[in-house]
C-alpha cells in the first residue's frame, strides 16, 4: 500500500466502482500530478499533455470496472492508461503535423532526430538518462515513444533477439536505480 493514500487501494477502487465523487476527487488530487509528469515526458507540449491528462481521467472514471487488482496496482493501471494515451497522441496525425514531424513509419530508419537527447529531463526520463547510451536509446524508443520490439530492431538494425535481451537488461538496471 502506498504510504501517500488516505484510502486503502481496495477502498478507493470499491468507492470508484460506486461512482463516489469524493473518491474520484481524491484520486485526481492525489495522482494527477504523477500522471501528468509521465505524460509530459512523452508529449513534450504541455498544453497537449493537459488534454491527454483530461482524457486519461475521463477514461479512468469510465473504465474503472475493467481494472483487475490481481494483475497489478491501481496506479500501475492508471500509469499504463496515461502512457498509452500519450503515445496515441504523439502518433496521431494532427500532433505529428503540429510539430512538423514526418510520418513515423515512412521515417522509421531516420533515427537521428529521435535519438537526440530530449530536453525534458525530469522523472523517469532523468533516471533513464543515467543509463548507458545503448540502453537509454532502447528505453526511449520502447517506453517513451511506444515502438514495438520489431520496429526498434528495424530502426537500430539490430537482431530482434538482441533488442529483447537489451531492453530486459536496461529495465533491470532501471529498477535498481529507482528502488
Amino acid at each position: 500500500m502506498s504510504p501517500y493514500t488516505k484510502y486503502s487501494e481496495q477502498e478507493l477502487v470499491s468507492l470508484l466502482l460506486k461512482q463516489d465523487n469524493q473518491a474520484f476527487s481524491y484520486l485526481y488530487d492525489h495522482y494527477s500530478p504523477a500522471l501528468f509528469g509521465i505524460i509530459n515526458q512523452i508529449v513534450l507540449d504541455s498544453e497537449t499533455a493537459a488534454d491527454v491528462l483530461q482524457d486519461v481521467f475521463v477514461n479512468i472514471w469510465r473504465k474503472i470496472n475493467s481494472y483487475d487488482e490481481t494483475k497489478g496496482r491501481l496506479f500501475t493501471w492508471m500509469l499504463n492508461i496515461a502512457r498509452n494515451a500519450a503515445i496515441d497522441k504523439i502518433r496521431s496525425r494532427p500532433y505529428r503535423q503540429s510539430i512538423k514531424n514526418q510520418p513515423l513509419e515512412e521515417n522509421v530508419n531516420n533515427t537521428a532526430s529521435r535519438l537526440a537527447p530530449q530536453v525534458n529531463d525530469i522523472g523517469l526520463k532523468k533516471v533513464v538518462g543515467k543509463l548507458k547510451e545503448e540502453y537509454r536509446i532502447l528505453i526511449d524508443l520502447s517506453y517513451f515513444q511506444g515502438f514495438t520490439h520489431e520496429e526498434i530492431s528495424r530502426i537500430l538494425d539490430l537482431p530482434l533477439g538482441t533488442v529483447k535481451t537489451r531492453i530486459r537488461s536496461a529495465l533491470m538496471q532501471l529498477r535498481t536505480m529507482i528502488s
Partner: peptide, 9 residues
Amino acid sequence: EEQALKNAV
C-alpha cells in the same frame, strides 16, 4: 509509483 509521485508535475 513512489518515483512517479516524487517527480509529479
